[in-house]
């Protein structure tokens, strides 16, 4: 029906702005729901870890109770030094949560800044900024991280800051294309004719109404990425060191006992990694198709 009458308008503008909850499909709802569940338990774990309540001391060595299978007392069992695995898993969120947030902040803040500046003033800034960003983008990320580890102490905060920096170009280019598209729109011109300040136009119309979805999607993907990087570095032994728990080094330590039949030592943290990263990426994908943005990892 609409095809005949509204075809022209459909092409030119978002003819019918449908509220979000109406355009969500079942797959979107499931993946976003699962993603939100993951985000919820991550935040709960982090709050518990920093306040140190409700859980047993994750560093408490108890030689008498080595290799206990999961029970009511020890929810995920104990490891080779008798430490409670559940409390170690909760504690391990400390290792990537704050660094991940730092990575998100760095990439969002700088990406937004660069994107808006180069989108609104293409003549002066665009070329310079994008040469700089191309240089960053052309470095292989893993090598860059290894260089950082060699140069500085293997502090996870520094590493994550660099993860953030390396993902600036992606965010910046998304924002830039958004701004360039919006700049030509009649309603931005109408805002200018009304005398609204440039700051208001940028923050209200460009960022809040049009770019926030991109930023949220980027943030979830970035969080998943930082979990992945932190755990894999710790697994290799260059991230978080024993006895401070991390999901990566828990898998690494537990794998020696895997073939002795004590599979929960490494399997439980590995499953946690899988669930978390999958949840974050699914959340990103779900939001992606919901907002109909075309953001790639």
């Amino acid at each position: 029906m609409k095809r005949f009458y509204y075809e022209k308008e459909m092409a030119q503008k978002e003819a019918f702005y449908v509220p979000l909850y109406k355009r969500a499909s079942a797959v979107d709802v499931i993946s976003i729901g699962y993603g939100l569940f993951v985000v919820t338990y991550l935040i709960c774990f982090y709050v518990i870890a920093i306040t140190n309540t409700f859980i047993k001391d994750p560093m408490q060595v108890d030689i008498k109770n080595m290799f206990l299978t999961p029970s009511f007392e020890h929810l995920f069992g104990t490891d080779f030094l008798g430490r409670d695995i559940f409390s170690r898993i909760v504690k391990a969120t400390e290792a990537f949560f704050l660094p991940g947030v730092i990575a998100i902040t760095v990439s969002t803040a700088f990406g937004l800044g660069f994107g808006i500046v180069s989108g609104f003033y293409p003549r002066y800034f665009s070329r310079g900024i994008f040469y700089f960003l191309d240089i960053i983008d052309s470095f292989p990320r893993v090598i860059l991280i290894l260089i950082v580890i060699i140069l500085f102490n293997p502090s996870i905060y520094v590493i994550m800051a660099f993860v953030g920096i390396t993902s600036i170009p992606k965010t910046a280019s998304y924002i830039k294309t958004k701004v360039e598209l919006l700049k030509e729109q009649r309603f931005i011109e109408a805002c200018r004719a009304l005398g609204l300040s440039k700051r208001h136009i940028i923050f209200k119309h460009v960022i809040w109404l049009y770019s926030k979805s991109v930023l949220i999607i980027q943030a979830t993907l970035r969080m998943g990425e930082s979990v992945l990087i932190e755990t894999s570095l710790s697994y290799l032994g260059i991230g978080v060191q024993e006895p401070v728990p991390s999901w990566g080094n828990m898998v690494a330590m537990g794998k020696d006992f895997f073939f002795q039949g004590k599979i929960w030592l490494s399997t439980i943290p590995a499953v946690m990694i899988l669930m978390t990263i999958m949840g974050l990426y699914l959340l990103g994908d779900g939001l992606n198709s919901l907002y109909n943005e075309k953001v790639s990892r």
Partner: peptide, 23 residues
């Protein structure tokens, strides 16, 4: 010029695109 914009205004040809569609 911004303070003066109060005094002169424009009615657009395509009014529907002169409003932010997400607002």
């Amino acid at each position: 010029i911004r303070p003066f914009r109060k005094h002169f205004q424009m009615i657009f040809q395509e009014s529907s695109s002169a409003f932010n569609p997400r607002m």
